[in-house]
C-alpha cells in the first residue's frame, strides 16, 4: 500500500507543473492590457509603459513564469493588480466559505445518492427503482442556476424558512453558518446526488449478480450483511471516482451558486477578477484549485487500493 501511495504522489509533481504552465500560459493569451486599465484613459504612452514596467509585464514570458513559479512554491502568489492585496490573503479569506459550501454539498450528495442508488440497485426493476431513476434523471437535468434560484426565491423569500442570501463564518455563529449553507448546498448537491445514485445503482446491480454475493446469501447472511459487507464495498470504486470528480465540478458550479446566494467565496471573487483582468488572482486561484483537484484524484487512486486489494498488488 505504501508503494502505491508513493507512486501516486510522485505522479502528482509533473501534473502540478503542467497546471502551473497552463494557468500561466492561458492567461497570457487572454486579450487586454492591465496596464492600460490602471493608467486610465488620460494616460500617455509613457505612463502606460511605466505601469507595465512596474507590474513586470515588460519582461519576457518565460522570465515572468519562472519568477512567478519561484514565488508560488514559497507560497507567494503575488498581489492583485488593483488593490495590491496579496492573492494568498484573498484566497485564505474566501476559502472557508467555498470549502464549507462544497463540503456540505458533497456530504448531501453522498448522503442522498448512495442510499438511493443502493436501494434502487438492490430492488432493481421495482417501483422504487423506477421512481428513483426518474428522480435522478431530473436531478441530472436541472441546471444548478435554476435549482439555486428556485430555492432562494421559493424557500428563502416566499416561504421564509431559511435565509435566501448571505454567509456567516462558523467561528462567528455555527448555527447561522449551518442555516445559511443549507439552501446553496442543496442547490449544489442536486446533480451530484443524482449522479452518485446512478453510479451506485449500476455498481450494486453488477456486484449483486457476482458469485461471491450469491455464496454469501447461500451461507445464510442477512440482507444487511450481504449488502454492507460484500456488495457495497465492491460497488464503491466507480462511486468514489464519481465523488472525486464531483469535487472539481462543485468548485466550478460554486461560482454560480455563490453569486446567487451572495456567498463571499472564491467563485464570486473569481468573476470580478475575470472582469478586471486581475491576472495574479486568477493564476493563484487556478493553481490552488488545480492542486486540490489533483490531490483529490490522487487520494481517490489510493483509495482503490483499499477497496480492491488487487490494485495494491499491481
Amino acid at each position: 500500500m505504501l508503494r502505491l501511495v508513493a507512486r501516486r504522489l510522485l505522479r502528482v509533481i509533473p501534473l502540478l507543473l503542467l497546471v502551473t504552465l497552463i494557468a500561466f500560459g492561458l492567461l497570457n493569451l487572454v486579450p487586454g492590457d492591465p496596464a492600460v486599465q490602471i493608467a486610465g484613459e488620460f494616460a500617455t504612452a509613457e505612463q502606460i509603459e511605466a505601469v507595465r514596467t512596474d507590474l513586470g509585464l515588460d519582461q519576457p514570458w518565460l522570465a515572468r513564469y519562472g519568477s512567478w513559479l519561484g514565488s508560488a512554491v514559497q507560497g507567494d502568489l503575488g498581489e492583485s493588480l488593483f488593490s495590491g492585496v496579496p492573492v494568498r490573503t484573498q484566497i485564505w479569506d474566501r476559502l472557508p466559505a467555498t470549502v464549507s459550501l462544497i463540503g456540505w454539498a458533497l456530504m448531501l450528495s453522498a448522503l442522498i445518492g448512495i442510499p438511493a442508488g443502493t436501494v434502487a440497485g438492490w430492488r432493481e426493476g421495482s417501483a422504487i427503482d423506477r421512481f428513483l431513476t426518474v428522480g435522478t434523471t431530473i436531478g441530472v437535468a436541472i441546471p444548478v442556476f435554476v435549482s439555486a434560484l428556485v430555492l432562494a426565491l421559493l424557500v428563502g423569500l416566499k416561504l421564509g424558512w431559511l435565509p435566501a442570501t448571505g454567509y456567516v463564518g462558523i467561528t462567528e455563529s455555527p448555527w447561522e453558518w449551518a442555516r445559511r449553507l443549507i439552501l446553496p448546498s442543496i442547490a449544489l448537491a442536486f446533480t451530484g446526488a443524482a449522479e452518485i445514485a446512478r453510479q451506485t445503482r449500476a455498481g450494486v446491480i453488477e456486484v449483486k449478480k457476482q458469485d461471491f454475493v450469491r455464496a454469501a446469501r447461500a451461507n445464510g447472511l442477512t440482507t444487511w450483511q450481504v449488502l454492507g459487507k460484500h456488495t457495497l464495498k465492491n460497488a464503491m470504486i466507480p462511486v468514489v471516482t464519481v465523488v472525486g470528480l464531483q469535487i472539481g465540478r462543485l468548485f466550478g458550479l460554486s461560482v454560480l451558486v455563490e453569486q446567487i446566494f451572495n456567498i463571499p467565496g472564491l467563485g464570486s471573487r473569481l468573476i470580478t477578477a475575470v472582469f478586471e483582468n486581475d491576472i495574479p488572482f486568477i493564476q493563484g486561484t487556478v493553481l490552488m484549485l488545480g492542486t486540490v483537484i489533483i490531490l483529490v484524484n490522487a487520494a481517490i487512486d489510493i483509495s482503490y487500493g483499499y477497496f480492491n486489494p488487487r490494485v495494491r498488488e499491481s
Binding site: L153, T165, G166, F261
Partner: peptide, 17 residues
C-alpha cells in the same frame, strides 16, 4: 457590501440581510 448579482442584491434587501 459588494453584491454583483442584481437578483442576489434584491433578495438580500428583501430578506433583510
Amino acid at each position: 457590501r459588494f453584491i454583483l448579482d442584481p437578483v442576489a442584491r434584491l433578495n438580500a434587501t428583501a430578506s433583510g440581510e
